[in-house]
């Protein structure tokens, strides 16, 4: 957690950054198209157009993981809030109203998740799994299965400057990082994740903290969904499908863990970047798109092996366990 600075976790976290750099270097060296000193288009494209989404997805999954939970309803959230946002824009004609509505939907879904989990005691898996069905179904019901098109204005708002997506993702990321590592609230969140009972006895409102964690995930999911709508210029009720697995993959690769208090915001950033660079780099090396999922699986296993190797290298720590 935030302040515990021991050599081992630094090495392990640093290792992932090193891997990222290595990947970058290898892909650049072995291809012409990935990156070159004169050729920034590709990398620029990744960073500006793809990475922000992946990173936010991973972040939305990471925050509930801090409190020892999981959010399987990210898919539904993305679909539902983005579609309702689009509907609102079409109905009212005001982009701001659309965005606010979309965020409200995301926050509401997160709130419901949080209440089901923290107040009623439903296991996070069950609660978010069910909410996923409810949310996806609702999106389909509302949209009657169809898409909404014609959001050129919306899209232009975002695309006026090519760095918009990156900027927004960056702002959210920094805010999350600050909140969860530098504030008392963040410390309380980690405390709840480490030991919810002890947290309660320490005067922390565990219920409130958990609900807020899921609401944060809901907020981020909504933002991601709306950013997608802007990028595509259209709203689709099945937008989010398949994103849960992507989110989990990204954050796990980034080093997060489903054990409470063991995940950090930086996991989402690193994991998202690695996934994006890897996917893109593999294409440039010549790995056919159809083999990318397999490559991702190999990477995960490799990451696991690497981490174990690093742990072994760190044998010096004398574990003096007093009886």
């Amino acid at each position: 957690m935030a302040d515990r600075f021991d050599v081992r976790s630094f090495l392990i976290k640093g290792a992932r950054v090193i891997v990222l750099i290595l990947l970058f270097v290898v892909f650049s060296a072995f291809t012409d198209s990935f990156f070159g000193l004169n050729n920034w288009t590709n990398v620029g494209n990744i960073l500006l157009q793809e990475a922000p989404f992946y990173i936010l997805l991973a972040l939305g999954m990471t925050i509930p993981m801090i409190v020892g939970g999981i959010d399987l309803s990210i898919e539904a959230n993305i679909s539902l809030s983005s579609f309702i946002c689009a509907m609102t824009i079409q109905a009212v004609g005001n982009t701001g109203a659309g965005i606010l509505t979309g965020l409200a939907v995301g926050l509401l879904m997160g709130f419901i998740n949080g209440v089901l989990i923290a107040r009623t005691g439903l296991p996070p898996f069950v609660a978010t799994y069910s909410m996923n069905w409810i949310g996806k179904g609702s999106a389909l019901v509302i949209s009657k299965g169809g898409q909404l098109n014609g959001f050129e204005n919306f899209r232009n708002l975002f695309n006026s400057w090519e760095g918009t997506y990156l900027l927004m993702a960056g702002i959210i990321l920094v805010m999350a990082w600050f909140l969860y590592t530098k504030t008392a609230f963040g410390r309380e969140t980690y405390s709840v994740g480490c030991n919810a009972v002890a947290a309660r006895i320490s005067g922390i409102n565990s219920t409130k903290i958990k609900i807020l964690a899921y609401m944060a995930s809901g907020f981020i999911g909504a933002m991601t969904g709306m950013m997608y709508v802007a990028k595509l210029g259209a709203a689709d009720p099945t937008l989010g499908n398949g994103f849960t697995i992507k989110a989990i993959a990204a954050t796990l690769i980034g080093g997060a863990s489903f054990r409470g208090a063991k995940s950090r915001v930086s996991n989402a950033l690193i994991g998202g970047l690695i996934v994006v660079i890897l996917n893109n780099g593999l294409i440039h090396i010549g790995v056919p798109g159809v083999w990318q999922d397999f490559a991702q699986g190999l990477i995960i296993i490799a990451a696991v092996l690497m981490e174990r190797m690093l742990e072994k290298l760190q044998t010096a720590e004398p574990k003096v366990r007093l009886q």
Binding site: M1, D3, R4, C194, N195, V197, A198, I201, G203
Partner: peptide, 20 residues
């Protein structure tokens, strides 16, 4: 189980109640 955050440091445990 109830009195300490076993995986936190001594320092983090000591300030855990009086955070605010």
């Amino acid at each position: 189980q109830e009195g300490l955050f076993l995986e936190f440091s001594i320092s983090d445990n000591i300030v855990s109640v009086a955070l605010k």
